[in-house]
Structure formats: structure tokens, C-alpha cells
């Protein structure tokens, strides 16, 4: 049995009340969307909280709507809602795919989009119970100074296992962040790719008083294709061992640019620019070269389960297959 330690609970129904609770440094409140990441982590002694701030009742965090050229998604939508929403499937199909591949049906019914973007990092060592970890002593992320997955490592390389983050970065999404300051709501907006830091102990660049409120993604035109692909040992429940998103910008039938976003390498997704591939035809050799780019520029670490060398060999294969799926008929014809 894994019991939760004692903590208080607040359940605001207005954003201002939620932000006020976060601004109260005495309260020690932690935002709780679906709780599918936070509560197991609290149970495993990876993190602590004095108060759980239940965000379920906050109306401002819900809804998915078209705002001009953008699709706006409240951070409180569940992953099941994101995966099934007609507007998302229509405008941001790679996001719908990524959300549909997270964990299990139960977890997608509970977990929120904001929670998946702010997912804590994990590695083979930290993702265990406190009792198990005591045998090896602490680590860079848990009251220690030694990394147990990359011997001699100086920085925490625990991986971000979010599937929606690579997809939304490929859509050039920005996140809306709110906090309570000077007796009012302050908001700021940052590109999602810049939300993440390379330090696995504090990889989400949010102050403890700040809350991720929503995501805004420009709806791509007809000259843009975006796809997402995940590999895990099992089709269900598993965290991704590879999670990649590809954005392909086209000029007529040829590539004009785009980006390749590679997740689960470390604390932040790796973004590779594809300008150098402008002018390439959507043919199998282009897909192979995109895979080679991933192989050359990304080095999976032994931070998550499964053999790191196997993941390194598998990454270009996943990227090539993702590219071919975006090329569609054009690759078959060439």
C-alpha cells in the first residue's frame, strides 16, 4: 500500500482564487489537474506538498475554441477530451494523436493537458519508491549529489515523458501563464519550446506562484504537415521511450523547412531546424536523411528503461517512418 502523507486540500472554482492560493507562500499549495503524475510522485516520496489545489472546478481552464487563426485549449481539458475533440482532430491532428497515446484510458480520462506539459521528469532511479531509492542513497533530483543513471553526471538528465509537448512544439504553440501579483492577475505568454530548461530538477520554467492556464496553437495552413509518433514497449500504459513530432513546411511539392522535435532524451524536447532541407522532394531518401539527422544530433541516454544503444538505433527508424507517413502518396510515386 502506498499511503499519501497528510496535506490540506483547496478546491477553488475561480481562477483568481486559485492564483491567490498559489501566491500565498505560507500555504505551500501545488496545482493538481488530474493528479495522475503528482499523486503517484507524492506517494513515492519524490515530491511533497502542504496543500493540493484542485483545479477541476476552475471554469477558466476549460474549453477548446477557435480564436482567429489559433486554436485555444484550456490547460484543464483532459487528454481524452483533447484526443476526441473534433476541432483538435481537424486542426491539430498530431496533437490529437499524441494525446490519444498517453498512458491508459483511465489516465486519459483524468490527466489534463496542462499536467502533461508540466509533467515531472523521471528516470530509472527516481521513478521508484522512497524505500527502494534509500538503498542507493539520494541523487541530483532527490537530496543527493550523485547521478545513478549516468555515472559521473553533473546535471540531472531525468527525461520529460510528455507526448503532447513535442506535438505542440511542432505546431509552434505558446502557453499562457497567469499569477496573482499587485492585487491583480498578471499574465505572460511564452513559446512552449522555451518553457523547458535542461536541468531535470527544475525543467519547467514556472514560478511556484504561476499557473499554466492555456495553450494557443496557430492552425497550420495547407502547406504545413505535422505528425507525431511514439514508441513504447507496450501499446498501453507505458511511458514513451521515443516520442517524436515532425513539422514539414512545403513550397508546392517540395520541402521548404520545418522542424523535428525529439522528446524523452532529457529534461526538455530537442528541436532541430529543417531549413537545410529546403528544396528536397518528398521521397524516401529525404525521409532517410531526416532519420540520419536525428541519429547524428540526438543521443538517447540510459536515463529511461530499455537499452540506450537500441533506442539510438531505433530513433532514426521512427523518424523515417513518421516522415514517410507525412509524405503520403508522393513518396510512393517517386
Amino acid at each position: 500500500m502506498l499511503r499519501l502523507p497528510v496535506f490540506d486540500v483547496a478546491a477553488p472554482d475561480k481562477l483568481t482564487d486559485a492564483l491567490r492560493s498559489l501566491a500565498d507562500s505560507q500555504a505551500g499549495a501545488r496545482p493538481l489537474g488530474g493528479g495522475t503524475d503528482l499523486l503517484p510522485n507524492v506517494k513515492l516520496g519524490q515530491t511533497r506538498m502542504a496543500m493540493a489545489l484542485l483545479l477541476r472546478g476552475v471554469g477558466e481552464l476549460r474549453g477548446i475554441e477557435r480564436r482567429g487563426d489559433n486554436l485555444w485549449l484550456g490547460a484543464g481539458n483532459t487528454l481524452a477530451q483533447v484526443a476526441q475533440d473534433e476541432q483538435v482532430r481537424d486542426a491539430l491532428p498530431a496533437l490529437a494523436h499524441a494525446a490519444s497515446r498517453v498512458a491508459s484510458p483511465q489516465i486519459r480520462n483524468m490527466a489534463t493537458l496542462g499536467g502533461n506539459l508540466c509533467l515531472d521528469t523521471r528516470c530509472r532511479y527516481i521513478n521508484q519508491s522512497e524505500f527502494w531509492r534509500q538503498a542507493l542513497g539520494g541523487c541530483l533530483k532527490s537530496h543527493g549529489s550523485e547521478c545513478h543513471v549516468v555515472p559521473g553526471g553533473q546535471g540531472c538528465v531525468a527525461a520529460l515523458s510528455s507526448d503532447t509537448a513535442p506535438a505542440l512544439i511542432a505546431y509552434d504553440a505558446t502557453v499562457e501563464i497567469a499569477s496573482w501579483r499587485d492585487e491583480g492577475v498578471q499574465t505572460r505568454e511564452v513559446p512552449l519550446a522555451e518553457l523547458y530548461d535542461s536541468d531535470g530538477t527544475r525543467h519547467v520554467r514556472l514560478e511556484s506562484t504561476e499557473l499554466l492556464v492555456g495553450v494557443r496553437a496557430p492552425v497550420p495552413g495547407l502547406n504545413v504537415r505535422v505528425g507525431h509518433r511514439k514508441w513504447a514497449v507496450r501499446k498501453s500504459i507505458d511511458f514513451p521511450l521515443i516520442s517524436v513530432a515532425l513539422r514539414l513546411e512545403l513550397d508546392g511539392a517540395l520541402a521548404a523547412g520545418g522542424k523535428l522535435v525529439v522528446g524523452v532524451l532529457g529534461p526538455r524536447p530537442r528541436v532541430l531546424d529543417l531549413k537545410a532541407f529546403a528544396g528536397r522532394a518528398l521521397a524516401p531518401d529525404f525521409a532517410r536523411d531526416l532519420g540520419q539527422l536525428a541519429f547524428d544530433r540526438c543521443r538517447p541516454l540510459p536515463n529511461v528503461p530499455y537499452d540506450a544503444e537500441y533506442r539510438r538505433e531505433r530513433l532514426p527508424v521512427e523518424v523515417r517512418r513518421l516522415a514517410l507517413s507525412l509524405f503520403g502518396d508522393q513518396a510512393a510515386q517517386s
Partner: peptide, 23 residues
């Protein structure tokens, strides 16, 4: 007791939910 196995699944407002990680 941490959301992996599904033995605690109940329907919450009609949707399968893991009651071991629901407050």
C-alpha cells in the same frame, strides 16, 4: 496504488477512473 494496474477502476461520472490516485 500508483495508477499502473487498474484494479481500483471505478466509473466517476460515467468514465473509468483510477480511484487510487483520485483524491
Amino acid at each position: 496504488d500508483k495508477g499502473d494496474c487498474g484494479a481500483c477502476t471505478v466509473l466517476l461520472d460515467g468514465l473509468p477512473t483510477l480511484s487510487c490516485i483520485t483524491l
